[in-house]
Design a protein around this nucleic acid. Structure first.
Lengths: 328, 328
DNA sequence: TTGTACGCGTTATCAA
DNA sequence: TTGATAACGCGTACAA
């Protein structure tokens, strides 16, 4: 009775409204003036037909842009277990959203044998992995890429954090407190992980690596438990994230160690750790600034403008988790 | 010297290889047999030209599908602060990824004045918000939608959890332990929030609502601090998530209350709370099953097949955070 | 202000 | 096995 239930197209609307296809298009986009009456006729016809508005795929084919940018995150479960990921993502999403761009979060599954997605740009923000199989494909298609604390790929804009310097400053703080033997919990191999470790070793070349794990409470707690149970030989533990540091503090206390009396513990990031009744000594980075800088750079690239590399500052925040080294 | 640096198209490749456009297409898609030699010529020409493979936008326009499904998550920052969100998301991502579909995580910014995205399907998994402005637009376009623990929209498939029954069973457990006066921390207004509260009130019609907050440690801790500081009149606090429950336990202890001696505390979800040295009494749901069911349903809908509604079971897990009610 | 005609890059149909 | 041609749904010069 009412034909095939195929969703109506702009052409259907146009003929129903008795106008040409292009007029109908203009009525929706407003890119050129259309008389109020005609416009209304088109809109009425559209609602009458249940026309859902211009098909985004077709529009994007025509315009060469999809209105979506991807953010490569590695494994979603570990990416989001880290409280430092969220404020940055919020900021990215805020800026891109305001610019009318959708944000496609790409987890590990997307990396496998996924079809290439129609993306206008990519934020490469993978922690804990070094390479990304799909990189070449997108790069070849000319998709602009912003790399956040990652490898230095040609043709991409990088957003970096003073991880090395910051950790070195933190290490000096510990040295000033008389610490000589320190251990460290690192992230999984990655650009920031190496930077932070290098910063630590500027001051403590012999710093012992307890182990590597994601910025995840449970994982860090396991590492710490094994290490501290033996009665630690060190007077301080430097972690590469606050989540790790909080876990180490909790584990140390469980074993009867006083923090910072028996053991100083430091973190990285400067995120809230409300379940800890103690302010961590940490290297504070502005996750929001990182997100803003990333999104801004990507926006410029998408618009065809150049985007310079960015290096964001960090700041040592001395809390109550570090103190003078205990005497041997 | 080498013309406009526009990215080459399949037509460029075809003419460079001396074959027709359709043959070139076939060489890539493999949808019909192509002689090995021709195929090789096409592929060689492609690499010579730097052709990045078929443009996904164009392909999708032609095929009417985009290969991307969206998952509406409300505010990303609260969505991911909840450890219960991740296992479910992992499962969804796993199933969809295996089916060759990309997963577009849509946060709150996407909801504003975002252009409609080219989606083959949508998972509506918003916690803490009741409506979604873009819903009508996608529904009008015929995009299949799976609603997870959400409103009962016509034309959608729903995946639900026995929240009400589960909470009622938990409440009965407390009643059996002699509890008569209980308070509760709820989630923000939402479908599961109402279900769980209703379940609780089946047994404790007078249960006092301490307050509502997301499944977030810091927020729950603030609520608990204010409430418990007054010296609680109740003998048990039922929370709508384990994260909340863990925060309440921590806060109670800080105030010198013994759990469960002075106060029983229960949660919901059954997620690990490693920073707590005590097993929570909680209502366990299989987050993975929820994700699998959701993705499976969506896959069916995308394929044009019907997908029945799903209700997932839960199970009471009695831990060490609940005990006999303290005598008045 | 409105209509005509073409192209975006691909896949599918049909003949050859 | 290959080639010509018509869509897919829309935006936009250009002409009227």
């Amino acid at each position: 009775m009412d034909g095939p239930s195929r969703t109506p197209t702009l052409a259907d609307v146009a003929s129903a409204a008795g106008v040409s296809l292009s007029t109908a298009s203009l009525a929706f986009s407003g890119n050129k003036p259309v008389s109020g009456a005609t416009r209304q006729r088109v809109l009425d016809a559209a609602t009458a037909l249940g026309y859902p508005g211009p098909n985004p795929i077709a529009r994007h084919l025509r315009q060469g842009r999809s209105g979506v940018v991807g953010i490569a995150l590695g494994q979603l479960s570990t990416a989001f277990r880290d409280p430092a990921a969220l404020p940055m993502l919020d900021a990215v999403s805020e800026v891109l959203g305001a610019a009318g761009l959708g944000l496609l979060l790409m987890g590990d599954s997307d990396v496998h044998e996924q079809p290439l997605l129609p993306l206008d740009g990519i934020v490469y923000n993978i922690c804990g992995r070094e390479s990304w199989p799909a990189y070449d494909d997108y790069a070849a298609r000319g998709v602009p890429i912003v790399v956040v604390e990652g490898p230095d790929w040609p043709g991409t804009t990088s957003v970096d954090v003073q991880s090395r310097t910051g950790t070195a400053v933190l290490a000096r703080h510990l040295a000033d407190l008389g610490h000589e033997r320190v251990a460290t919990v690192t992230l999984e191999p990655s650009h920031p992980q190496r930077e932070r470790l290098a910063g630590l070793r500027e001051v403590f070349p012999e710093a012992e690596v307890i182990g590597a794990c994601p910025s995840d409470t449970a994982a860090a707690q396991r590492l710490a438990a094994d290490y501290l149970a033996g009665g630690p030989d060190v007077t301080a533990v430097v972690c590469q994230s606050d989540v790790q540091a909080a876990a180490v503090v909790a584990e140390a206390r469980r074993l009867g160690l006083d923090v910072p009396g028996d053991l100083s513990v430091a973190g990285f990031d400067g995120v809230p750790t409300p379940w800890l009744d103690l302010d961590l000594t940490t290297v504070v980075q502005s996750l929001r600034d990182k997100g803003l800088a990333t999104a801004t750079a990507l926006l410029a690239l998408v618009a065809g403008e150049p985007a310079p590399d960015v290096v964001l500052p960090v700041e040592l925040r001395v809390g109550a988790s570090t103190g003078p080294a205990r005497s041997a």
